[in-house]
């Protein structure tokens, strides 16, 4: 292949997509990182500010509230979504005649965008459940769960599990199906109980599915925005703001572009670290089997 041909091939196949990728993703990323070290106000900057934006971010009490809330949300949703999703996958692969219909039911919430989900569930928590529990005198939902920080947290978890467990279920189903029948047959002949088979054979043999699903739920947890905005809107009193929404508010509602972007850079570092740690741990477990 001569040079002219190489250049032409690059021009035809790669130049345009790479240029768009550069303009849309790489440049704003680099620019955003650079701007956190200036006194940028959203339009221009006049001088360098060192790490001032970062120190200011850490002095912001609301940011700490958000960080703890986000951390709690990421951990709880990670566990809840994966436990439920794995359970659903076992259920759907249990050779029921209704398996396909069940799978559809579990998956459908996933087709719907976070805002629509948020609005539906807001109606459920604020109106439907209250009216139902008053009618039948149930104790749990007399007051809207969205009015109080603690219950609003669980409302966010419920909706997140409802929305994303179906997707993770598909990943686990793929893992479960990929296990060879011979192995399961051998375990059955040896008289292994269903629980034993699950723990000693199925789970180790589908470790890759866990790696993927944990990675996705981790990332989704940190990046959750739509459901947060549409379900709690950060209320009451900004106590249920996840980091994504906090950054949005800081920059676009309060005009703090410098700290907003610094927090976004910190968020990126958190996601990247958490993802790397999780994937390397999971990979090690995968190899060990």
């Amino acid at each position: 292949m001569n040079t002219g041909h190489k250049v032409r091939k690059f021009g035809i196949f790669a130049a345009l997509p790479l240029a768009i990728f550069l303009v849309v993703l790489v440049l704003p990323f680099a620019q955003g990182f650079f701007l956190t070290f200036t006194n940028w106000n959203g339009f221009k900057y006049t001088e360098f500010a060192g790490i001032q934006n970062y120190t200011k971010s850490f002095q912001d009490d609301a940011f700490w509230t958000t960080l703890w809330f986000t951390l709690k949300f990421v951990i709880v949703s990670l566990v809840a979504v994966n436990v439920v999703a794995f359970g659903l996958a076992l259920l759907v692969t249990a050779k029921l005649r209704s398996a396909t219909i069940l799978r559809t039911f579990f998956f459908v919430p996933n087709l719907i965008g976070g805002v629509v989900l948020g609005v539906i569930w807001q109606f459920i928590f604020n109106t439907a459940l209250i009216s139902i529990s008053q009618r039948y005198s149930l104790p749990f939902f007399q007051e809207s769960w969205l009015n109080e920080t603690n219950t609003a947290f669980w409302a966010l978890i419920i909706v997140t599990v409802w929305q994303s467990s179906g997707y993770m279920m598909i990943i686990y189903i793929t893992g479960l199906i990929s296990i060879e029948q011979d192995v399961l047959e051998a375990a059955r002949v040896d008289g292994a109980s269903a629980f034993r088979t699950l723990m000693a054979i199925k789970i180790p043999l589908m470790a890759q599915a866990f790696t993927i699903s944990l990675f996705l739920t981790l990332r989704n947890g940190f990046m959750a925005y739509d459901v947060n905005v549409a379900l709690t809107g950060g209320g009451p009193y900004r106590t249920t703001e996840l980091i994504s929404m906090h950054i949005f508010q800081d920059a676009f509602a309060f005009g703090n572009f410098g700290t907003g972007q610094s927090k976004a850079v910190l968020m990126f570092l958190m996601v990247a670290t958490a993802a790397l740690v999780q994937v390397s741990i999971s990979k090690r477990l995968e190899v060990q089997r």
């Binding site: 993703l25 704003p28 990323f29 955003g32 949005f248 676009f252 572009f257």
Partner: peptide, 14 residues
Amino acid sequence: IVPFQALMIPFMSI
């Protein structure tokens, strides 16, 4: 693994 949130602010103003 770059979250959109890390890009949106420079994105909008640039």
